[in-house]
């Protein structure tokens, strides 16, 4: 476990936030998508993060520190929103169209949270670099 291992943890944090950003992009872009390959409207995607030990065979500190990884992408099982629109080609017999249960405001809040978490992780990287630089300046 050294100073540069901190960079590894932060890099995993950045990667997982990038995946989260992708799911948000997908959710936002498909907020009105009524057709999918599996049939039915688009379902909201949610990433699942898992903490993994940084160095499972290393020293105690390496085993205790964890880095996040995205292990799977789940789908929100909220029922689709039904909107009366008989002219729509995907309308059912009653004239209702099923739209994905995606709340754009909710996605925006997730987006801000992702952005801030990413920023926080870059801050850790920056601080790690600064600390290494300061350590190198000892006795200069």
């Amino acid at each position: 476990m050294n100073l540069l291992d901190t960079l590894q943890i932060s890099a995993s944090g950045l990667t997982s936030q990038r995946v989260r950003l992708q799911t948000i992009a997908s959710n936002m872009a498909n907020a009105r998508t009524t057709r999918t390959e599996e049939g039915g409207p688009y379902r909201r995607k949610l990433p699942v993060f898992e903490a993994r030990p940084l160095d499972p065979f290393g020293d105690a500190l390496g085993q205790a520190m964890a880095e996040p990884t995205v292990t799977e992408i789940t789908e929100d099982d909220a029922p689709p929103v039904r909107v009366f629109d008989p002219g729509h080609p995907d309308a059912d017999a009653d004239g209702y169209v099923s739209y994905p249960a995606i709340n754009l405001m909710e996605e925006m809040v997730d987006l801000m949270s992702t952005s801030r978490t990413f920023e926080a992780n870059t801050k850790v990287v920056e601080t790690t670099r600064q600390m290494a630089s300061e350590a190198l300046n000892i006795g200069r």
Binding site: L3, L7, S10, A11, T122, R129, A132, L136
Partner: peptide
């Protein structure tokens, strides 16, 4: 992997500077 590249560059920079010191 934008950030991974940047971090690898930083790592290379830090190790190089350590060696120079």
């Amino acid at each position: 992997d934008l950030h991974g590249t940047m971090i690898a560059l930083q790592e290379a920079d830090i190790t190089l500077r350590t060696m120079v010191s």
